[in-house]
Amino acid sequence: MLARVIVLLGALGAAAALTLVPLLAGGPLGPWWTSLAFVAVVAAVGYGWTRLLQVPVGWGVGWIVVGTGVTGAVLVQLDGTDDLEWVPAVFAVGVVVAFVHQMGRRDGRPRLVESVSASVSGQAVVLLGTGWLAADAGTGSVAPLLVGATGCVSAALVMSVPWPRPVTLPLATVAGGLLAGALGGWVVEGTGVLPALALGAVSGATTAGLHVLLYRQPTTSHRRAAVSAGAACVMAAGLGVHVGARLTLG
């Protein structure tokens, strides 16, 4: 039960950092404060990623994940656009770095395939998360961030309930869509009910799906791993939020 609570807190913390900081930050340094918040969430993912996936490579994989996320955040700010066209190149370089890291091991390289997979999957998660940084579709609106975060939080709350997954998975998607649709239609200006409902459902489904993949006992009984799992569930929804923002605001 404690593991479920920590995973939920990790997801709530990540959603808050990715939405409240852009909402509150202002002035010329606002985008950089947003990037710092994003890097903090990336650090939470990398902090427990090795423990979460149970690979015997110490901190190396976590540092690769964090380095990839930091690179993504910097490029978003330097690029100044919302197309994320550089993501494939960054991911390709990250895969090379993952292999170089494994070549440098001097422990006999046990579970080599699992270690490389852990590095690559972690990099994929944080690069998907860069969608949160470019989710305004060039308009400066925080509406897609708030709607997407509502979908993620709703799904995380549902998935924290100890019910069978055939029940919680579709329920999380429906809850994310309905609550985000209500928020987008009647509370947040800049989007309508139907676009917000779709965006919330997509972000909720992504969060719930990754929760199913990552939540494993006894792995997530470790606090570091549980925090990483919760943050990763929200980060992975970044691409869906970004695409939804382009369709509704772009």
Rank of each mutant, 00 (worst) to 15 (best):
V120P: 00
A11Y: 08
D107K: 05
A226I: 01
G26D: 15
G60N: 08
A156C: 05
G131A: 10
G48I: 03
G190N: 06
G240L: 05
A16R: 01
A196W: 07
G60Q: 14
A237K: 01
A226P: 05
T150R: 06
L36T: 12
V96H: 12
L18T: 06
A17N: 11
L146Q: 09
V188I: 13
G148P: 11
T68K: 02
T34E: 08
V202G: 01
S117K: 00
L53C: 01
V234A: 01
P28N: 02
S154W: 03
G26M: 08
A175I: 09
L145N: 07
A137Y: 00
R106S: 15
A172K: 10
R111F: 13
G108K: 05
G140N: 10
V167G: 06
V90I: 11
F99A: 14
V76W: 06
P166F: 07
R111H: 14
L24P: 04
V93I: 13
G48F: 02
R216I: 10
G108R: 04
V227W: 13
G80Y: 07
A40H: 03
V21K: 04
W59S: 13
L24S: 00
G185F: 08
G250Y: 02
P162I: 03
G67T: 04
L194G: 00
V227A: 09
V147S: 04
G67I: 03
C152S: 15
L210E: 04
W186G: 12
W49M: 08
L199I: 11
G129Y: 05
R105N: 03
G185L: 06
P166S: 09
L249T: 00
A143C: 04
L24A: 08
E114Y: 07
G151R: 02
A226E: 04
V187H: 00
A226C: 08
R4V: 14
V55F: 01
S35T: 14
P110S: 05
T68L: 12
L8P: 05
T34Y: 03
F99T: 13
P164Q: 08
W32C: 07
G108F: 02
A229M: 12
V65E: 11
E189G: 13
T130D: 04
I64G: 12
T34N: 06
L128Y: 15
G151S: 09
G148S: 11
V70M: 06
S228Y: 08
A245N: 09
S35A: 15
T19H: 09
T150V: 13
L179H: 02
G190T: 04
G129L: 00
H242C: 06
P218F: 01
V90D: 00
L18Y: 07
V167A: 14
G69E: 03
V65T: 12
G10M: 06
W59Q: 12
G177A: 15
V161Q: 11
A44Q: 10
L194S: 10
V76Y: 03
V41G: 04
V243N: 04
I64P: 00
T139Q: 01
